[in-house]
Design a protein around this nucleic acid. Structure first.
Length: 479
RNA sequence: GCCCUCAUGGUCAAGCGGUUAAGACGUCGCCCUCUCACGGCGGAAUCUGGGGUUCGAUUCCCCAUGAGGGUACCA
């Protein structure tokens, strides 16, 4: 059997759209699953869109996600160069061959010759006499267009969408070679896929309409066309419930933005793998190695799918919880901005509270923010039915416990909790009844990322005692 | 306008002629618990509509509708 070769052929736009990353992932998984080769090719034939440093973004993303390519501009390979702008002469050669064989023609129309009302390109350049063409070539700029045969059917097969039959009369004479002598995507991709011996093409569904034209080109050149797999489009949900192609207004759409927001590369990859592809089993958390093992074309879904940030967040929380404490500490470093200083100082400890509670690293600052924003809060927080706490009962607990806390020299979570639990035991009250009031007094808020001991430890002795005194003072006035 | 494609809960999806129509996220309730989170248990919620074919259609065919894409010297 022929060795599988897939490719990822992004254009250097300056960022890696998540849909693009998914295509790369699928191409990578497919190649690896069949022990094949994964090729990276840069499609930079649109000079107007040149972005400085854009190819670096592509390399960095592939590196960060572990989608290692076997051939590419940065590492070379038997089919170099892997950058289309460096292959200019190749396309020109094949375009001329097609003209000679009657499958393409020179077109001298100006860009705006076709009026806006007509759809598709129609002109008579194809039937120009050879002498006239020769004459015009000397002085006029031109493009080379594919000559689509009339009244024929093109039949093609896609691994995902099945058989497709198209009437050639609905196809346009598309431009193959632009007036700047650079090929269009539609042409370059056909030439390169063949020349680079690509056996399986995985690309977005938006190219399915162009597939018949590619098929015609392969036929004209006498080449065998690769197996194709068109994958669904990733959509975003609009506020009104409708969907449209995932874009900035839906949220973060590039890999870099997602990472910046605190999503782990592994989680992003795992989640996007499952958007438009299914392993057909109940499990959803897979390592890259497991995905390679499971990935086949029959799991590819035809219908478009909506990117769900909530589910990605859930997936991310799974990966965060699987991190070792050391990894979590290391990774969280750059997300500590906005966290109160006494949380940063004790981050080694606070991080253990955070790890099980956050879904993205971006939430860290917010999680502990209230500890810094301490102000007089609504005293009703001290009331708690389940623990039989009234304002008065809470006040008593605080007054009883305060001297013990004040005396405590080793301000540790264990010691703090011990004081409260001994007190509860001695009084014959519920543990919650003794821990609730100090926790509320310390945090100034009902919901906290840890229990009483943890909150008091984080805030520190001096500040905690100050807060306890303030609460006692306020409660005494109230009761 | 023309062409192509798609259509299972709010979302991701399994299903490939006979099922109580999986599972996950989200959501709701309960349990656990000093709060939250985690975890456990349970609930609500889906086959776009209409025609066929068939003993029987979510599943096959046709039409309609809706959605997406193409119709670029962009990819």
């Amino acid at each position: 059997m022929e060795k599988v070769r897939t490719r990822f052929a992004p254009s250097p736009t300056g960022y890696m759209h998540i849909g693009n990353l998914r295509t790369a992932l699928y191409a990578y998984l497919y190649a690896r699953h069949y022990g094949g080769t994964f090729v990276l090719r840069i499609e930079d034939t649109d000079q107007k869109r040149f972005v400085e440093g854009a190819t670096e973004v592509i390399y960095e993303t592939l590196k960060a996600t572990g989608l290692r390519h076997d051939e590419g501009p940065d590492i070379g390979g038997p089919y170099a160069p892997y950058v289309q702008s460096e292959r200019k002469a190749i396309y020109e050669e094949y375009a001329k061959k097609l003209v000679e064989s009657g499958h393409a023609y020179y077109c001298f129309c100006k860009k705006d010759d076709t009026d806006e009302e007509s759809y598709g390109h129609h002109c008579d350049c194809a039937s120009l006499a050879p002498e006239i063409v020769k004459e015009k070539l000397k002085s006029e700029s031109y493009v080379i267009r594919q000559k689509i045969p009339r009244g024929q059917k093109v039949q093609l097969h896609d691994e995902v969408f099945g058989d497709i039959v198209v009437d050639t009369d609905t196809l346009d004479d598309q431009v193959l070679l632009k007036s700047d002598k650079l090929p269009t995507y539609n042409f370059a991709n056909v030439i390169d896929d063949h020349l680079m011996n690509i056996t399986h093409v995985i690309r977005g569904k938006e190219y399915i309409s162009s597939a018949p034209k590619y098929e015609l080109l392969y036929e004209a050149l006498g080449w065998k066309s690769p197996v194709t797999m068109h994958v669904s489009t990733i959509m975003g949900q609009n506020p009104d419930g409708s969907v449209s192609k995932l874009s900035k207004r839906h949220g973060s759409v590039s890999f870099a933005q997602l990472v910046e927001a605190g999503y782990l590369p592994e989680a992003i990859l795992n989640y996007t793998a499952l958007l438009g592809w299914s392993p057909k089993m109940e499990r959803e958390v897979f390592s890259l190695a497991e995905l390679i093992e499971l990935f086949t074309a029959d799991g590819l879904v035809k219908a478009d799918c909506v990117f769900d940030y909530k589910k990605l967040a859930w997936m991310n929380s799974i990966y965060i919880s699987k991190l070792s404490h050391e990894e979590f500490l290391e990774y969280s470093k750059k997300f500590l901005e906005g966290a109160p200083s006494f949380v940063k100082d004790k981050w080694e400890f606070a991080s253990s509270l955070a790890q099980g509670r956050i879904e993205t690293f971006g939430e860290i600052g917010e999680l502990f923010k209230f500890l810094e924003d301490y102000k007089d809060f609504d005293l009703s927080l001290f009331e708690n039915k389940k623990n039989k706490l009234t304002l008065e009962a809470s006040l008593n607990v605080l007054k009883d416990l305060y001297p013990q806390f004040e005396k405590l020299e080793d301000w540790s979570v264990e010691n703090l909790n011990a004081i409260a639990s001994n007190y509860a035991e001695g009084r014959g009250i519920k543990l919650g009844a003794s821990m609730w009031p100090p926790r509320i007094a310390t945090a100034g808020q009902m919901v906290t990322p840890g229990g009483m001991g943890e909150m008091m430890y984080l805030v520190g002795k001096e500040e905690t005692l100050k807060r306890l005194r303030r609460s006692i003072e306020r409660l005494e006035k109230e009761v």
